[in-house]
């Protein structure tokens, strides 16, 4: 089965993917960066095995590019990227958004990552979760960055009360075991 990691840019999708890959396959997935849209192609790690309490799940993990409704090359200039490179990055990032949306038809389950320090009521969160739900794909909402002092997971639970929400810090690994058991329960 294929497990897709979705969310807006810079919510910690690749950090989470790296954490899962290191835990399950002993090697990371891809590079992380404070610059938005660092992941601009779907990254895939195949044949990982999750073993938990007698449950064994073999899966492909897909780390999706961050989904945005506007990609402006000028947003990258403040990170010291020159205009040509920023425009190239914007183009690649837009392609990544398209690729991520098209992959909604190829995944069997989804982790939807939300930055717990940000307002969860966004067009992207609501639209993409709606799209996943419409396809009857099992979904776990991951409230990430709980290691930060201004994290507020209650807002996320209130925004998406129909979905199981797991609070984690992909950066520190806090609560990852709970996420694994939730995945196991959801897919067993």
């Amino acid at each position: 089965m294929s497990l897709g990691i979705y969310g807006s840019p810079n919510v910690g999708k690749t950090t989470l993917a790296n954490r899962i890959c290191v835990d399950l396959a002993d090697e990371p997935m891809g590079a992380v960066s404070p610059v938005p849209h660092e992941t601009r192609r779907v990254q895939k790690k195949e044949n990982m095995t999750l073993k938990l309490n007698g449950f064994t799940l073999s899966m492909n993990l897909l780390d999706m590019p961050g989904i945005a409704v506007k990609v402006d090359y000028r947003d990258f200039l403040s990170y010291g990227i020159d205009k040509d490179e920023a425009q190239k990055r914007a183009r690649e990032a837009t392609l990544g958004v398209v690729e991520a949306v098209r992959n909604l038809d190829k995944i069997d389950a989804a982790l939807f990552v939300i930055d717990a320090t940000e307002d969860p009521y966004t067009q992207i969160n609501i639209t993409i979760i709606g799209n996943i739900e419409a396809r009857n794909i099992p979904i776990v909402v991951v409230a990430n960055k709980i290691d930060l002092p201004n994290a507020n997971t209650r807002r996320i639970k209130e925004a998406f009360p129909s979905y199981e929400c797991v609070e984690v810090s992909a950066m520190t690994g806090e609560n990852l075991n709970r996420l694994y058991s939730t995945i196991a329960n959801k897919l067993s």
């Binding site: 945005a68 409704v69 958004v97």
Partner: peptide
């Protein structure tokens, strides 16, 4: 018909209209 709507303006800024599918 196959992809999200992607529009590029004169400043080379991209806009994506996400598909709206609800159960």
């Amino acid at each position: 018909s196959k992809n999200p709507v992607v529009l590029k303006d004169e400043d080379e800024v991209y806009y994506v209209k996400l598909p709206l599918e609800q159960k």
